[in-house]
Structure formats: C-alpha cells, structure tokens
Design a protein around this nucleic acid. Structure first.
Length: 509
RNA sequence: GGCCCGUUCGUCUAGGGGUUAGGACGCAAGAUUUUCAUUCUUGUAGCAGGGGUUCGAAUCCCCUACGGGCUACCA
C-alpha cells in the first residue's frame, strides 16, 4: 500500500433519502479514515439533473450529523478541493473527455437514444442483449465509423453527441480489491463502451467519479458491491488519463439483504415488516409518502451505528458494544466479510435496549418529559425521576416509558379482561374494601411501611397473598404489569390509591 | 441470457489443514421475584452437494446447486 495520506469519500447521489446501507458505507469510510488518521470527505454526485430531489442533500447531511459521521470537507463545510457538488464542477470535466478523445481512448457517438433503444429492443426480440462496444461500434453512428469531415460537420452544426469510452479488445483487467482479493475482468467478455460524457454537457458517474477522486487526492475508494462490475472501467480510465501512479485502492462492501426473502434491503421491507430502513424520517416531496426513520422511531444514534458496524464487520472478538471512537480504533477492511448480510430487526432492538439501559435515570427523565407534555400530563421532576427509576429496566425505547408507566399519571380507564377473569373472584370486593380501610390507617405512606402493615393484616386474616395482591394490582394499574406493588402505592399517594381501589370495586363489581 | 462476487446454527458471525466447530440475537426450559418485567443458568440449532489433494479437510482445488450484484446519455 502506498504511504500517501488516507483520504476517503462518501459520494451519495441526492435522489432521495439515504438508505441505511448508504449510512453503513459512510460509516466504514469514516472508520477507515479514523483508523489511519486520514480525512473523511462528503461529495454530492448530482450529475443527473433529471433525478434531483429537493431536500435530499440536506437529508444526507443531517443523517450523517445525527450519526456523528462528520466530514472534514464537503458542501457547506468547504475544503481546499472544492466545490464538492459535481453540478458545480461541471466545467471541469469536458477537458478530460476531450483529452481521452485526442489520445484515442474515447470517441464521439451521435446515435440518438431512440436509435439505441430500437437496437436494444430488436436484440431482445432475438433473445440477445445489445451492447454498444467491441463488435457493434464499427457499424454505428460514431466518429469511429464516420469520416473526419462528417464528424466535424456534425460537431459544428451542433448535433447532439455523447462521448464513449473505447474499450480495448480482449484485455484482462486485474485489480486487487481490499476485501475480495484479486478480481479479473476480460474487456471483450464483459465490458461495453460506456458513455462518459452526456449530451446535456454533464459527465456520467464514471468519468466524474474518476476525475474527482483524482483531483481530490482520494486514496481509497470504499463503496457498495454494486460498483464492483464497473471497477475495471475505472481502472482503465485511470490508465487512459495517465493517472495510474496515484490511482486509489478499491474496496467493495457486501450488501445488506432483506430480513426474509430474496434481494437487497429496500424501502418496502421496512413498511412491510415494521422497521425503518432510513436513518431519519422522510417525506417524499412529490407523493407526500412518509418513510419512518430510526431517529423518530426512538433509536439512539449510538445504537444505530453499533448495529450497522456489526453488519458485515467484526473485530474478531466476542465484544459486541462499541462506541464510534472504539470502532475508529479497531476497524480494518481485512475484517469486513465478503458475503451479504441479512438485516435482523430483532437484533437492532436489542442494541437499542442496551444503550437505553446504559442511560442514567436523569437522562431518561429528560427524554420522557416532552412525551408527558404531549400526553397532557403534569408531573413534577421528582415524581418523573422516581417513576423512570422504577420502570427503566423493562423498557428498550423512550416510547416504552409511557406504555409502562401511564398508570402513575392517570387512573386506568379499563381493566385487562384476562386478568379480571383470572384474578377477580366473588369475595374480592369485600377483601379490597378491608384493605382500603387498612390503608387509611397507615400514617407513614412509604413502600416499606405499607408492606409491613399489609403483611401483618394478611397474616392476621390468614388470606393468601396472591389472592389479594393480584386484584389490588389490577385496581391500581388496570393490568398485571408494573414494578413492586407497594412502590406503586407509595408513588400514587395514599389518597389516590384508596380512590382507585374503590373505583375498581365499583367498575368491576 | 452474459459477466462478476459469494455460501458455517432461523439470523449476525468466529474459526483459514488435526477444535467436543466458539460467541451473540431469537426461541425453549429452569432458578429467582408471594405478581409482571428484569436478571441468572441451561438447552436448542450449522460447515449447500459431489468429486479430488492429503495420514487427516469447515479450512486447499475443481464441478454442480443456490444466493447476490451488474448488464442506462442512473448513480
């Protein structure tokens, strides 16, 4: 490996919200940079103006920020290799395309999209695939076939053209992938003459990405496996442009697959199975469709990062929880697995639960307050903290806090039917009435004291604890959930506890 | 179809010639909690198939099957 400074880039296209697979690509780039004291750069690849989606770039940047993957150079940040939006670099690419033409590595092609489409359809009808390149280019409408005069005439008359790469014949292109090892492609067998420069004056991804990586001194190209088939084209482009000596190293990451079924993870899977596939909530500006996000679903960014890091990478130890900083110290491309990973939403929850449990009661109480406000509940900080302390361990998301504790803030409106039929006997109302009388007499309303009084009373009456405790819980909570019964009594307060017992006797009967 | 990449418990993975094939999620059972959850313990389950190479193959090679990606004037 060369000893030049490590500079990596995350280069998304602003065509919509960033997929969690994209976030993982960004993460691995970021970690690789951290590991090697290098630089992590954001570059927006917006060479296709027809696919521009308003808000997508902002979404990408906000997502990276939420995850803590902050670039050192990029749009809105600056840097000495800017601009970092390809649309703003438009004027820069043409000269490289021209250079390739004069050196014989590329040519003008005047075929219209309709003509190519027709050829494609024709081939399809014969169960063949049309490929513009070796074997077909000599018979098409381009500067290889046409005379110099004809080409010149078309050019000066302003006829639309594209510039295509002239793929050399029968050449084996071998390149070392940092994850997969040596990969070889034969040009004649698998490569066509890709368009480098479009008729609208913009470069395609292939040209822009090679030119920018070179100009931005990118040392390592770390991207998804879907780019592996175009690696030989890019390698050849570096050669054709005379940049072989400083060509970056390549690493192609395995894909994230659907939890069940075939194929890579898509937006639909999330909708279908009830988990987010995007880091942040996204509202489609065209259709108004809403896609849920990890952030809005209550995941902590550290959990999201942790689960993403372990999807396709592991440190070779049994350790499973890592901070972003730890990951930056441990990461290596050698330990990235080669095969695609199925995403498991259950394990994602487990990661969040871990980080949830690691939060202090005060931190969680702070997160809980806005939820309470939204529910129209007024409660003092002290009570909120006490409640959170009691129910924390049975929650894995901030949203669970309310589900597990609403009865501390408002009396149950209904009683769980199963619990009623199982625990509420004929003599229950009578027993509970006696308990409420007993509670009236408890002067020191603390869990310990209540329990003591209750136990003494139960022993004196020779009643079974379960026979009374369960319906009592039902009266206070509305179900069979919650922490220690006497703690609930204490937090509810004497008056409210007795009120709820009487309410349950009335309502259940 | 063509090209390329891949294949260890249901899932994420360790292991890279000699291992009782290890861990985690999930699931199940037990313990504990006079209740629910937590927690703890135990269990469950895997080298895609077939040929080689070798004293010995999950591990190296080949074939097959299966999975995945790409095959646009999209990235």
């Amino acid at each position: 490996m060369s000893d030049k400074k490590v500079r990596v880039r995350f280069a998304p296209s602003p065509t919509g919200p960033l997929h969690m697979g994209g976030v993982r690509t960004a993460l691995f780039n970021y970690l690789f940079a951290k590991k090697h004291n290098g630089e992590f750069i954001l570059r927006i690849e917006d060479t296709d103006q027809t696919r521009f989606v308003p808000g997508a770039e902002e979404y990408i940047i906000e997502s990276l920020n939420w995850c803590g993957l902050t670039p050192v150079e990029g749009p809105g940040i600056g840097g000495e290799f800017g601009p970092y939006r390809q649309s703003e670099r438009k004027d820069l690419y043409k000269k490289y395309a021209d250079q390739l033409i004069s050196s014989g590595w590329a040519y003008y092609a005047f075929d219209t999209p309709e003509e190519i489409d027709a050829l494609r359809k024709e081939a399809e009808a014969n169960k063949e695939t049309f490929s513009y390149g070796i074997g077909t280019r000599e018979n098409l409408n381009n500067s290889l076939k046409l005379s110099q005069e004809e080409v010149q005439q078309k050019l000066t008359s302003g006829e639309a053209y594209v510039i295509r790469f002239k793929m050399p014949e029968d050449t084996d292109v071998t390149e070392e992938d940092l994850i997969r090892g040596s990969v070889t492609f034969n040009t004649t067998k698998s490569l066509d003459d890709k368009v480098l420069f479009k008729s609208d004056g913009m470069p395609t991804y292939h040209l822009a990405n090679v030119v920018d990586d070179h100009l931005m001194k990118i040392s390592h190209v770390i991207r998804g496996e879907e780019w592996l088939p175009s690696m030989p084209l890019h390698v050849l482009l570096y050669k054709a442009l005379g940049w072989e000596a400083t060509k970056p190293r390549f690493a192609h990451l395995p894909l994230i697959l659907k939890p069940v079924g075939k194929g890579k993870l898509s937006k639909r899977d999330g909708d279908k199975m009830g988990f987010p596939v995007f880091p942040l909530k996204w509202t489609d500006p065209q259709t108004g469709d809403i896609s849920r996000g990890y952030r809005e679903d209550g995941y902590f960014p550290e959990a999201f990062i942790n689960l993403l890091a372990l999807l396709g990478w592991n440190p070779g130890t049994d350790k499973e929880f890592f901070s972003l900083e730890e990951l930056g110290e441990l990461f290596s491309l050698e330990r990235v697995v080669k095969s695609g990973s199925r995403f498991d939403p259950e394990k994602a929850k487990w990661f969040n639960k871990h980080y949830f449990q690691e939060k202090t009661v005060d931190e969680l109480a702070l997160l809980f307050k806005p939820v309470l406000k939204e529910k129209g509940v007024e409660a003092g900080d002290e009570k909120i903290a006490k409640v959170v302390a009691e129910i924390k361990e049975r929650c894995e998301f901030v949203s669970d806090l309310w589900d597990q504790s609403y009865y501390f803030f408002e009396a149950p409106e209904s009683y769980d039917e199963k619990t009623v039929s199982k625990r509420w006997k004929e003599d229950t109302p009578g027993k509970l009435s006696e308990i409420s009388v007993l509670f009236e007499s408890v002067s020191d309303w603390k869990a310990e004291a209540i329990k003591e009084a209750f136990s003494a009373f139960m022993n004196e009456k020779e009643w079974g604890f379960g026979v009374v405790m369960n319906p009592l819980r039902l009266s206070l909570v509305g179900g069979n959930m919650g922490p220690d019964l006497f703690v609930i009594c204490e937090l509810l307060g004497k008056e409210e506890t007795i009120k709820r017992i009487q309410l349950a006797i009335e309502k259940i009967g």
